[in-house]
Design a protein around this nucleic acid. Structure first.
Length: 338
DNA sequence: AATCGCCTCAACCGCACCATA
DNA sequence: CTATGGTGCGGTTGAGGCGAT
């Protein structure tokens, strides 16, 4: 018994021959795929429609990226997986030219082992032996201290941000946007220096603040209002202690960690992906916007049932502190004294 | 040269979801 | 409301490649 869609005919299974590939390519490039279930008959293939779809999407599509994954792609996979889990199709959307199958295979054959060898649980991205953790959260002077005995290698827990920065720099669509990326201002350069981290402090019910250091190692206290989730009704505002105010969307900048004044994760925050930048919104790429909306839904859905445990937070915070000097793409430094 | 064991990755399977009749 | 077909997704399989013995 084959699949429903191909029960009418005896469908061939297994590897595709070059002749079959040729038939499928010729048909789709001429007529488009239309209904997949009708493809086998129209293209003269003894295959199930589902098999044709898979072959096209995973192998024959002209826009597929060939070759092995780059370091940057690997990092994106790790970072997005930490948040989304095994949602390969979603992860693949952030890697142009890569398929969910490819990402999944790469994860299972390579990344998973790498994480395990680093002492990380590939599902949670937490350190496996949490008992060996030695950490201290200190509130004195509003400073934040994290230490760890056995940590030899920095974990790239927050390198997502650096990837985002890297992508943003090169004008590609950012996965998640720090606030500076949503700035409605004529002077981008003023804002561009604030490549801030996502660690925030909740000061009041609708205000997050954080400190970043710019390339000159000057500290800037950033404040971010997020009272409404509606873009239309928002009166966006962001301010900096040492720069003129600029306008941003009234969305949380990052779906990351927001800590209250005691360094504790506050689950009342509802992080979600920031909207597209103004310049991108001005474009007429409807499909891209649709994708973005879908992703936002997933963020919302994801965080409904998502709670970071302290193990995660600690390793994440620690790793950022260690990592920021190690990654060439990281353009900022963290200040911990908020 | 033959065999074994491991790894990779293309492809399949089952399920969920959605649209439509 | 239910049945049906189409599509997409994630987990799993297994053929083939490759190094070690």
């Amino acid at each position: 018994m084959g699949h429903r869609c191909c029960s009418k005919q005896k469908a061939k299974k297994g590897l595709w021959s070059p002749e079959e590939d040729e038939k499928l390519i010729t048909h789709i490039t001429t007529y488009g795929h239309g209904s997949w279930s009708s493809i086998p008959k129209l293209a003269g293939l003894q295959r199930c429609g589902k098999s044709c779809r898979l072959r096209w999407i995973n192998y024959l599509r002209p826009d597929l990226k060939k070759g092995s994954f780059t370091q940057e792609e690997e990092q994106i996979i790790i970072d997005v997986h930490r948040i989304l889990g095994n949602r390969w199709a979603q992860i693949a959307k952030h890697l142009p030219g890569r398929t969910d199958n490819e990402v999944k295979n790469f994860w299972n054959s390579s990344i998973k082992k790498k994480l395990i060898s680093q002492g990380l649980d590939p599902q949670t991205h937490n350190l496996i032996s949490s008992s060996s953790h030695q950490r201290a959260f200190s509130n004195k002077n509003n400073s934040f201290v994290v230490s760890h005995e056995n940590q030899k290698q920095p974990i790239s827990a927050f390198s997502m941000i650096s990837v985002v920065h890297e992508k943003t720099k090169h004008n590609s669509s950012p996965l998640i946007s720090p606030p500076y990326n949503n700035v409605q201002t004529t002077d981008i350069s003023t804002v561009d220096q604030y490549k801030g981290p996502i660690i925030g402090v909740k000061n009041s019910s609708n205000l997050a603040t954080w400190t970043v250091k710019d390339q000159n190692y000057s500290s800037h206290d950033m404040q971010y209002y997020y009272g409404s989730s509606s873009i239309e009704n928002s009166t966006p505002n962001i301010s900096s202690s040492s720069s003129s105010s600029v306008d941003i969307y009234q969305h949380l900048p990052m779906p990351g960690l927001l800590l209250d004044e005691f360094g504790i994760w506050d689950s009342s925050f509802q992080p979600f992906e920031a909207p597209k930048t103004i310049s991108e919104d001005l474009g007429d790429n409807h499909q891209e916007q649709q994708l973005q909306q879908n992703d936002e839904k997933i963020w919302d859905k994801n965080f409904e049932n998502y709670s970071f445990d302290h193990g995660f937070m600690e390793s994440a915070l620690l790793s950022e502190a260690l990592l920021c000097h190690d990654l060439s793409s990281v353009q900022y430094d963290l200040a911990w004294n908020y």
